[in-house]
Design a protein around this nucleic acid. Structure first.
Lengths: 237, 237
DNA sequence: CCCGAAAGAGGTATTTATTCCTCTAAATAT
DNA sequence: ATATTTAGAGGAATAAATACCTCTTTCGGG
């Protein structure tokens, strides 16, 4: 998400980072010095004014700021704003343990080189020792973690999802991700059971879950019996 | 840096990701369906038109895309463009080593709450919406990534490792990790074939690999035919 | 302290992005 | 095959962002 406040805050932070005022930053970028005046961030009728993408591109160029850097400047504001309100997702804990996680959740993620397996065999992707090399690699952030600061890990118990998930495997779960038929999901029932399954079918009245291990029968629940459902996004191997 | 092309490409990718046309994405965001027409990305005098930050915020909200995700969509284009020029990360070093990649390895890793599935059903681990809550959670660094700056991702092709890995799934590979019988591995042969398999047996003269998909026969190689072998540590779901 | 430069509020003019509209082509539904 | 809907080119109108300008306040240097 992106909000008006955040964008303006990022501009202010970028200026500050370079020991500039908003006015000075605009000038450096070849824009009029009043472009980013605080007095002009809302129109007289109260409507929010958004800086143009072009202006943003210009200040990034003028300060040599990467997109990633600008995004961090945007998100700094966001994390500060959301953290106090985060009680909506995390029970406010005196220990502040979860709050701490929330803060680190905004830490920039690693870039990971990625290539299609079908092309990986072609020359130039690996050195002799099997390490990635060459210029054919794309970059991704760790896939699936970009947009959810609320992921958690569960350690597998049982054999109902063999061979996918073995005893002791770790699965990464995203409570914010959308869930569709065929997805691998974690479900908590109103009975208090938490299970990893495959979503076979879901409609307004019932939920059908299957196991990867054929020896385990499908499970059927009414929607009322399902407390929550979250998608599994990663599994350890 | 941010360029006109990149921003428009990101919008197109976001649309595509949601099985929408530019026209459809605009409509979903409450904008006029012609807002992102390709014909309107340059003015008649040839001047580039930039979509407004407000429009971008609206499409992000309409598609539930995070800023990080949108940035990645921008950077996909960028990584293709920059890869040749970005020698800082993948320039053909004489050693072919990943000095640049090594640098990104310094990025801080995320803490993730983790709990055993067997105890997850007990009260106090989740709030009503299924988000982690309470104090029973341990914290881990993203499991498996702590000590290896050389991981990379491969996108699966083929069906030999169904149901574990489906076409298009992403696997994370650690070339530095040790490999044991039973591990899920990526292997490159001297013939240039790169494959994901299960290590069934390995000794000083031979390597036997099996597929998760029983319809695919085991593969046997002499040790000399194996260029390298690396362990799969994570798989997308 | 004084003076010049910079910052920034506030107003108008200009430029630029979106909206509205018409129309054609393509895609989809019947 | 026909009818309907959607996508999108292209043009004019409208809304919104920047540029230009005046003026006041603040800041920095002598």
């Amino acid at each position: 998400m992106l909000s008006h406040d955040e964008v303006w805050a990022a501009i202010d932070r970028l200026a500050e980072k370079h020991d500039l005022t908003p006015s000075g930053l605009a000038k450096r970028a070849g824009l009029d010095s009043t472009t980013f005046n605080k007095s002009k961030r809302f129109a007289v009728d109260g409507r929010a004014r958004w800086p143009s993408t072009e202006s943003i591109a210009k200040i990034m160029e003028a300060t040599d700021a990467s997109l990633h850097e600008f995004m961090d400047l945007v998100q700094q504001h966001k994390s500060h704003v959301l953290a106090p309100a985060s009680g909506e997702k995390y029970s406010p804990q005196p220990s502040g343990q979860i709050l701490g996680f929330h803060e680190t959740g905004q830490t920039p993620l690693r870039d990971i080189p990625v290539v299609g397996m079908a092309q990986a065999g072609a020359g130039g992707f690996f050195d002799d020792a099997g390490f990635p090399a060459g210029q054919g690699w794309d970059q991704v952030q760790f896939p699936g973690l970009e947009d959810d600061g609320h992921i958690y890990a569960l350690e597998i118990s049982g054999d109902s999802m063999l061979p996918l998930y073995r005893e002791g495997d770790t699965i990464i779960v995203s409570p914010g991700a959308s869930v569709r038929k065929g997805d691998r999901v974690v479900v908590k029932t109103t009975d208090g059971e938490v299970m990893a399954k495959i979503l076979k079918r879901k409609n307004s009245t019932s939920v059908e879950l299957s196991s990867a291990n054929q020896e385990h029968a499908d499970r059927n629940f009414t929607t009322a019996q399902i407390e929550w459902m979250a998608r599994i996004i990663w599994a350890s191997q």
